Amino acid sequence: MVLFGIILFIFGIFSLVYNRKHMLALLLSLEIVMLGVFLILAIFVASSIVELIVFYFVLVVCEARLGLGVLVIGVYFYGSDELRGISLLRC
């Protein structure tokens, strides 16, 4: 199970590096990284520190909410989620 978490983490990092065209792909890659970290964390702390796992879930949910909010605002103002079309000087 730890090996699966490490594979998910590495796959998510590679996906973050190579998929830089669309914001939605970046957010999904970041969620894969978070899932890999959760699997590793859940195995190592098991049931001794449940509060840490709940805090991690809250952190991941807040990160996903902020990312989707930025995605919606970006699509509203720029018309798509392509990152090459987003210019800070144009806004």
Rank of each mutant, 00 (worst) to 15 (best):
Y18T: 13
L30M: 14
L59W: 00
E51Y: 03
V58T: 13
E82F: 09
N19W: 09
V50F: 06
I10V: 15
F77H: 04
E31M: 14
V58W: 05
L52D: 03
V37T: 11
G36Y: 02
C91G: 12
L26M: 12
E51V: 12
L8K: 08
I32H: 02
L89K: 11
G36H: 08
R65P: 03
V61F: 02
R90E: 05
I73P: 00
A46Q: 11
L8V: 09
I6N: 01
Y76M: 15
E51L: 11
E82Y: 12
F38S: 10
V60E: 00
V75S: 06
G12M: 08
V70T: 07
Y78H: 06
L59Y: 00
V2P: 02
S80H: 09
L35V: 14
H22P: 00
F4V: 14
V45L: 14
L27P: 07
L89W: 03
V70D: 02
V37C: 06
I49F: 12
L59E: 00
G85V: 11
F14G: 06
L68A: 04
R84K: 12
R65N: 07
Y56E: 03
L35E: 03
L83H: 08
G85E: 15
F55I: 15
G79A: 10
G85P: 09
I43G: 06
G67H: 04
L35T: 14
L88E: 06
L35N: 06
V37H: 04
V61H: 00
C62H: 00
I73K: 08
L88N: 07
H22A: 05
L71P: 01
C62E: 00
G67S: 08
N19K: 13
F77M: 03
H22M: 09
L30S: 13
L59V: 07
L39R: 02
I6W: 00
Y18F: 13
L35Q: 06
G5V: 11
G5W: 00
L68Q: 07
L66Y: 04
F38W: 04
G85A: 14
L24T: 15
F77E: 08
I49D: 10
V2M: 11
F9N: 09
A42F: 05
G69I: 14
V61Y: 00
G5S: 10
H22L: 10
A46H: 08
V75G: 05
I73N: 07
I13V: 15
